[in-house]
Design a binder for these strands. Structure first.
Lengths: 213, 213
DNA sequence: TTGACAACATACCGGGTAGTATGTTCATCA
DNA sequence: TGATGAACATACTACCCGGTATGTTGTCAA
């Protein structure tokens, strides 16, 4: 049961702006999105946005950070779970994948933000913000990394290089941000079926010993 | 044995420009890359580029198409392979993954081009070029899709939805374009080890019955 | 040797956009 | 009730970049 964007946001006015920004960034990418685009989607003008955010880069950074905040909040309940390790990983992966689908605009911003940070060819002002996003995201990734590392020690997972395995796992779990779109008559069962396939693919890929069928 | 960019290109002058453009597009993305950036990398000026390409979009499209050309050429030899189906898939996947690593700048352009095409928020002039790239790329994807579909019928693969399985498979096989970087003292054996892990992950993810260890 | 053309370089223009400076409205509170 | 400031809208500027128009150099053929 992940959080909706609005529920998670304390400030409603900001949530409006952030949602519109996230949608624009998802549809056109950071560079191709103008502040006027975001304002137009809000039915407002630049003034409103620049009143709350000093620069476009700050707005983007806020969208990214909000996306990661939601991810952290979503998996927090199962982190200290005392369940079987493979079961814990499955819960985490399921929650994560669902998160990718339900908050897709924010997660695509995170993806692009990480790409921008890794390229590193930006001005020093937004450089720091993007680096912080990268650290924030790596911290999140480490949570999964530790689980699959322990899983390998316990013999429930089987892979060679931990870094590569983690990358491949996240590529699979994150992939819905690229190809998932909510269909008109889509039910909760449909979504669960998609999530199950993604999680199963990743688990098998990691050499998981038990089938999550 | 994949083709190098220069070997594959018939026109040398064009290869210079395309390589420089691919590197720029990889480092900064399409929108953030100016024609002057590409020219500067070439040690030239805009004039040289605009003499050969009518617009920035055409240059980008050519880079993408070149990337796909190389992919098609690389897997062509094993398409009609009479080997065991899982073996054939493994060869194709291995070649594809190696291709992602060796021609990474071009493949990242392809990735961004597909993203741009799917977003569809571009002017009608480059719209047609991007749509053609999309078809070109889908044709390539269908080659793999048919193999894993047949594999499922023969019982060597096991997955639910064919479309989702194909997406997940390509996410894994393509992933090196995001995280792979050639290390200083890297050997051919190192590269093969990486490729093997990627291919193994994808094969297991697809429910492949035999281990490629 | 000269005309013609390819292959560039140089100089310039125009549109789009981030950011700013300046209104304007409305609620709140002394 | 008037002053104050938040929350915007409006109007404007400066800059970057795609594209073009024009100049320059070398080559090659007749």
């Amino acid at each position: 049961m992940t959080l909706s964007v609005r529920e998670f946001m304390p400030d409603i006015a900001h949530a409006d702006i952030l949602e519109a920004a996230a949608l624009c960034f998802m549809e056109r990418g950071y560079n191709a999105t103008s502040i006027d685009d975001v304002a137009r989607r809000l039915g407002a003008t630049k003034g409103r946005i620049y009143h709350h955010y000093p620069a476009k880069a700050d707005l983007f950074a806020k969208v990214c950070r909000t996306g990661m905040d939601m991810n952290y909040a979503a998996i927090e309940p199962v982190r200290g779970d005392s369940a079987d390790l493979l079961e814990r990983w499955t819960r985490m992966a399921t929650i994560h994948t669902r998160q990718m689908m339900e908050t897709r605009p924010f997660q695509r911003a995170v993806w692009e933000g990480v790409e921008l940070a890794l390229r590193g060819s930006t001005t020093s002002s937004q450089r720091e913000e993007l680096d912080e996003l990268l650290r924030y995201r790596n911290g999140y990734g480490d949570i999964f990394r530790e689980v699959i590392a322990q899983g390998r020690r316990e013999g429930v997972f089987d892979f060679e290089d931990l870094g590569i395995a983690n990358q491949l796992m996240f590529m699979a779990l994150n992939s819905p941000i690229f190809w998932y779109t909510k269909r008109p008559g889509e039910t909760e069962a449909d979504r669960e079926k998609i999530i199950r396939q993604v999680v199963t693919f990743a688990m098998r890929g990691l050499g998981g010993k038990r089938q999550t069928q």
